[in-house]
Simulated scan of single mutants.
Amino acid sequence: MDNLKPTVALFDLDKTLIPGDSDHGWGDFLVSRGYVDQMFYQGKNDYFYGQYTAGTLDIFEYCEFAFKVLADNDMTTLKAWRTEYFESIIAPMLRPQAMALVKKHRDAGHICALVTATNDFITQPIAAAFGFEHLIATRAEMLDGRYTGKVAGTPNFQAGKITNVNAWLNEHDLSLAHVAASHFYSDSINDLPLLEQATFPVVVHPDAKLAAIAKERHWPTIELFHSEYAA
């Protein structure tokens, strides 16, 4: 970032840029491959996903559950699982329209960041596939090359996204209040705090609660893939 105030373009990931949920999908993948106990893990994974969609998720409780599998396995194993997950589950969900949207902002000289509640381990290759130079995600704590099972810093969820985006901008003596403009794309009511901070909020395949707010506030609504893929 130079002395001129930049424009930033921020993008949620799940059901915004891809027609699925990368966090919940990771849990389904682990269950389908037999890498975790099926009955226990599937039930918990679905329970927390229901909380997320309702806007009532306890993010720390969820991270304690989701990060245990990271802490219980070595990095070589985890990276092999992640590669398999990306190639078999995520890659088929990459849509040219979503890729083009990110590219449009990048070509306009905007500083683009993927801003997701899903943890950084899962989302690193997804961010790379979209060409993002910046990933702002919930961070899984590491110690001596292994995950501890704990969250590092503030979870990137709800108002935590504002905290973490500003922390990223502060590294360059900026904040959301001190950029030329900010764009933020999201589908979820959980992202209302950051949408309200953006100069140009855009809702993408919004859930019912966010759709109602977007209509009331005259926020633009777009689709990047057919709705039947977004369930």
Rank of each mutant, 00 (worst) to 15 (best):
K161D: 05
K15W: 07
A140N: 11
V8Q: 15
V179T: 11
K44Q: 10
F225P: 14
L30D: 05
L135D: 11
T199M: 01
D14A: 02
M75E: 15
L13P: 08
L57P: 12
R82P: 02
E64A: 10
C63N: 15
E84V: 03
T221L: 01
P220M: 02
M99P: 02
I222Y: 12
Y47P: 02
Y62W: 14
H205K: 11
P193V: 03
G55F: 10
I18R: 10
G149V: 05
Y49G: 00
I136H: 08
V151G: 04
M1K: 12
A66P: 06
V31S: 01
Q42T: 10
E64S: 13
D2A: 03
D173F: 11
V8R: 13
Y229S: 09
V151R: 00
T76E: 15
E141F: 02
D21H: 05
K209A: 09
D46C: 00
V31I: 08
H134C: 03
S88R: 14
W81Q: 09
A198F: 08
F11S: 13
E228H: 13
F132E: 11
L194G: 03
G43N: 14
T123G: 06
K79V: 06
Y62A: 01
L10H: 10
A71F: 12
S88D: 15
I222A: 13
V36T: 11
D120F: 05
T53L: 12
Q38S: 15
N170G: 11
A108Y: 02
V102G: 06
A113W: 09
A54C: 05
A152L: 15
T77D: 05
W26A: 00
Q97Y: 10
I111M: 11
T56G: 08
N119I: 00
H178L: 01
Q97G: 07
A127F: 00
T148R: 08
E87C: 05
E87K: 12
K209G: 01
D187N: 14
T56A: 14
D2T: 07
D58Y: 05
Y147A: 04
Y147K: 03
L192T: 04
G50P: 06
Q51R: 12
H226R: 09
N190M: 01
L101H: 10
N45R: 07
F121A: 05
H178M: 06
N156Q: 02
